[in-house]
Amino acid sequence: MLSLLRRLCLLALAIALPLHAADLTVDLGHGSKTYSTAQLLARGDIREIAIPDDVSFKRAMRYRAVPLKALLEGVSPDDTLQFVASDGFAAQIPAALIVRAQGSEAWLAVEDPAHPWPMLAEIKGDAGPFYVVWTNPAAMKIGPEQWPFQLASIRRQPPVAERFPAVRPDPALKADSPVLRGFAVFQRTCFACHTLNGQGDAKLGPDLNVPHSPTEYLREDLLRAYIRDPQSLRHWPQARMPGFDRKALSDRDLDDLLAYLQHMAGRKQP
């Protein structure tokens, strides 16, 4: 009986403990570091910041946050950083946007287990325990895919084209080709959720080239509408793909992205 009571007490304690205290792994190529929620909340450089128009919550939010570049000692502006979330989202963000900020500043928002953030309406989940947010994101055209939440790790990686050669366009293309511009758009907006030709780290969305590219089975006008607002083409309340309005993806960027996808439809690899 005593053993049963002890187990019940431990279970009650486990339920009562904060659920969002967690660890963040940062690996910049010279040994990984692990930061706990408690360590980050106790840092001397933590601040309370205001985000007037939060990308994920769709409203004004306030966070306790650490300047992200303070956790990236030794990173070069030429590096690529990979932000991996617990749900399989894997954003590639150029380090220059963070360490050479010109108007926008990246912050690591830390969820306090004693004061959890509200649930995200679109995915019916939590953005914590760690979330990359930006002050004045418009100054450097920071897109919605560069706001990774449910963050689990940050890693320095070689450039995408070097790690995943099957996603590269034809190397004979001219430097000003729309396809090459579209490749850059693809890395910024699509590669965080999708693979292409079976290559990539993301685990959220389907492959965008095998067995078929969406340019092969959707009319161009429907594909454009789907990218702008996925629910306008196929209503599915549980869908995870966000829409990309013209603030997040200009008409020219969309043109270039479609040029890249059409080009890669002719470069399928098993």
Rank of each mutant, 00 (worst) to 15 (best):
E162G: 04
G243N: 01
L151E: 02
H263V: 10
A90Q: 07
H115W: 02
Y226K: 14
L2E: 15
P237S: 08
L254A: 11
A239T: 01
R168N: 13
E105Q: 15
D54F: 06
A96G: 01
R47Q: 15
S32R: 15
V179R: 09
P118S: 03
E111V: 09
L2P: 00
D79L: 02
L204I: 15
C190W: 09
L204G: 01
I93P: 06
A50E: 13
R59T: 12
L8R: 05
L2M: 11
P230Y: 06
E220C: 04
D53W: 05
D201L: 14
P148C: 12
L72I: 04
L218R: 10
L2D: 13
V55M: 13
L108K: 11
A259C: 10
D255T: 10
A172Y: 01
R155G: 05
G205F: 04
Q102N: 14
K58T: 03
V66L: 12
P270I: 02
I154M: 11
T135C: 01
V75M: 03
R7T: 03
L233Y: 02
L4F: 13
A239S: 10
G29W: 13
G200E: 10
V179K: 06
P77I: 09
L249P: 06
A259V: 05
R6G: 01
I98N: 07
A248K: 07
S86A: 09
D253L: 09
L40E: 04
F89Q: 00
V75R: 06
D53Y: 13
D245A: 11
V55P: 00
F149H: 14
F57E: 03
G44T: 15
F89K: 01
G182N: 04
A91R: 02
G198F: 02
S232W: 02
A21M: 01
L249M: 15
D79F: 06
S177E: 08
F164H: 12
V167M: 14
I123D: 04
P211H: 11
L24N: 01
V66W: 13
D251I: 00
M119N: 03
A152K: 11
R224K: 15
A38I: 08
P211M: 09
A121K: 13
R246P: 00
Q39H: 12
E216H: 05
R6Y: 02
L2C: 01
R156V: 09
R240E: 12
D256E: 14
V132Y: 09
V99G: 08
T135I: 03
L5N: 07
Q39I: 03
M140I: 00
R252P: 00
N209K: 05
R234P: 00
L120N: 06
Q238C: 00
Q82C: 08
A202W: 09
T25P: 00
T189A: 11
L81F: 07
P270K: 14
L8C: 07
T189L: 11
F89D: 02
A265L: 03
K58F: 10
L13V: 15
A139S: 12
V167K: 01
A175N: 05
P18R: 10
V160I: 12
D221V: 12
L4D: 14
D255W: 04
S153Y: 03
L249H: 14
G243T: 05
R168S: 08
R155V: 13
S213T: 10
A70K: 13
